[in-house]
Design a binder for these strands. Structure first.
Lengths: 356, 356
DNA sequence: CTGAAAGCGCTTACAG
DNA sequence: CTGAAAGCGCTTACAG
């Protein structure tokens, strides 16, 4: 029963408070509070006595009590649509990192793309008094829901998925330019029939990336046929299905721009299983540059958006609105760059020849 | 300036409290508190009036204040050693899920295997008054550190990585039996020289899995040569290096038991790059059964430990010690099962023939 | 430089 | 059935 944290000053199981420290060092709790916040008002000798008592007692500051009194909070809600997706895991790490660096602490919720769950956790986070929320909205989240669940009084930044007409700040990569670069790269390699694989048109991210695909095609004087877009779940299994459909169509594409890396991984896998060699017989590019991409067979040519840093920006952006500096509806669009590896075929001997 | 949440009852930017609700419905705040906790003491008519005021005002319960008063907390610390590893991401999802189901909310920290960072977040979590902590300790964490940073007064359960001699509960898979089954499977397929690849002997998990590998070998009357163990970072890149070393040794192994799936993925990739076909020329098995495993080339034979469920158990186990029912030092070891896919070679025609 | 008092938003005996 | 009072662990003017 000899609890280490309370051993020297108080008995019982009761946690040590500033009152205990005050008594132990013969000052008032006001003074203890002052030394805790590092005030220069306190005489050095007094400070030393108090700090000594703190040390000996194993006192732990109660941030919840302090925050209640100050009517502010050190908690930030981090709501992630699918933590199981390596892309979002990396995003989460970026956000979390920045949060701790600024003295905030994240409450995590993984909505798993479930909007009902999202409503629940949003309410729960508000009850816990979060100072703000950064979230990648669940698929299909609409502006009216968000405004109902998140009054504009609570600082919020949306990340990775735009919600049209929502009044919140947004941080995400330049999907359109990224997809445009990827497609253009394939065109320069000689491809003319380039399909877009994966995702659904209910996802703004897919819409943006398809725009980029279309841009590149049209710049090259190629018409972007609707039949070249094959939708699917944004997963490995989805990629496999999508490419199966695409390869079954009468006018086969010779290259594939994929919604994201896990779709592209599914695509390369399915292709290989059917004796079609990605990077040799056919070109494939992904999006996101997740850790797996470079270890794929073949290594994925993909669009890097520096996910970790983007997560950091999302957090910084939230601090902006928390401290009232920035307007609530600021947007930050991160630049992207193409990472050329092998799946596009650029490194292969046949690169440069015309595909037909 | 017309904030939706405070529109009808209070002016200014001040959030609505039970005092506002009390005033608006003509009762005392005690009564409001009673209806909030669903007490049957309150007369139906009074309750209706109060609930109406709550509804109209957009009142949000302040759990922090309630918890301060009740001296308990709804927060649980979830410290993860590497969220970027798909295995731990899945574990985190399992924990998070169970936490919300019991009305707790997780504070996330990704230590990224950094023990200094781990100390910091542990302290931060204590300051935020978490009711308990579930953590996968950073590599190299030792018992004395843990006991210094986590007095036994705070309910803690360790997961996935044992810390020898630490006084906390532990939840993890049966590493030894899992690795034993995997190795045995390879032996039954005709292999005699089976290497163990990846991880470091400073990791208890690696030690446990090597034990299992040794068990199977010895059961089959094969001596477990130390030279057959190649250590490496437990990553895809680590797997590639390890197998390179292994293939360079004079007495080559014909099969590889890998520390985990990402190591195995690196191994299959490196092998393929060198013209050695995993699942045909050589057998490979992983551990964890992460989502990527079945989409690998070739699909990975691996040990499944139901990570999601194990995460749930870790959380449940924590509730056990929070509610004082269970002893602090209870352990739960989850059963594992072998998932046979293609990388082991079982599905290939040559299966059954002797390897030499 | 230090202390007494009030208050953050709740809950919980205790009266009535 | 309902209200007044005390208190959870802090901070912050305000005196002295």
């Amino acid at each position: 029963m000899n609890e280490s944290r309370t051993a020297s000053i108080v008995g019982g199981g009761r946690p040590v408070t500033i009152v205990d420290i005050a008594r132990a060092s013969g000052v008032s709790k006001s003074t203890v509070s002052l030394v805790l916040k590092g005030s220069r008002l306190v005489k050095a000798e007094t400070r030393a006595r108090v700090e000594d008592a703190i040390e000996r007692s194993g006192y732990i500051y109660n941030r919840g009590a302090a925050n209640l009194r100050k009517s502010k909070s050190g908690l930030v809600g981090m709501v992630i649509s699918d933590l199981t997706n390596p892309f979002f895991a990396e995003l989460a790490v970026g956000i979390e990192n920045a949060l701790y660096q600024r003295g905030f602490v994240p409450i995590l919720a993984n909505t798993n793309e479930d909007r009902g769950r999202q409503s629940q956790v949003l309410r729960s986070m508000r009850e816990h008094g979060v100072a703000g929320i950064v979230m990648s909205p669940a698929r299909g989240t609409e502006a009216w829901q968000l405004t109902a669940e998140l009054p504009t009084t609570i600082p919020t930044v949306l990340t990775m998925r735009r919600v049209v007409d929502s009044p919140f700040s947004y941080v995400g990569p330049d999907n359109r330019t990224g997809a445009r670069m990827a497609t253009k790269h394939l065109i320069q390699l000689g491809h003319r029939r380039i399909a877009f694989l994966g995702g659904f048109s209910t996802m703004t991210t897919q819409l943006d990336r398809i725009e980029g695909w279309r841009d590149a095609l049209e710049e090259a004087g190629i018409t972007a046929e609707a039949a070249l877009v094959v939708e699917s779940m944004p997963t490995r299994a989805g990629g496999r299905e999508a490419v199966r459909v695409a390869m079954g169509s009468p006018k086969r594409a010779t290259a594939f721009v994929c919604y994201n890396d896990i779709v592209a991984i599914g695509v390369t896998r399915e292709l290989a299983l059917n004796g079609i060699r990605p990077g040799i017989d056919v070109g494939v590019v992904g999006f996101d540059d997740i850790a797996e991409a470079e270890h794929n067979a073949p290594p994925l040519t993909t669009v890097n958006a520096d996910t970790l840093r983007l997560g950091g920006f999302a957090a910084e952006s939230l601090f902006g609105v928390i401290h009232g500096g920035r307007a609530q509806t600021m947007s930050f669009i991160g630049t992207t760059r193409l990472v050329v590896r092998e799946s596009c075929g650029a490194l292969h001997a046949s690169a440069g020849k015309e595909f037909v």
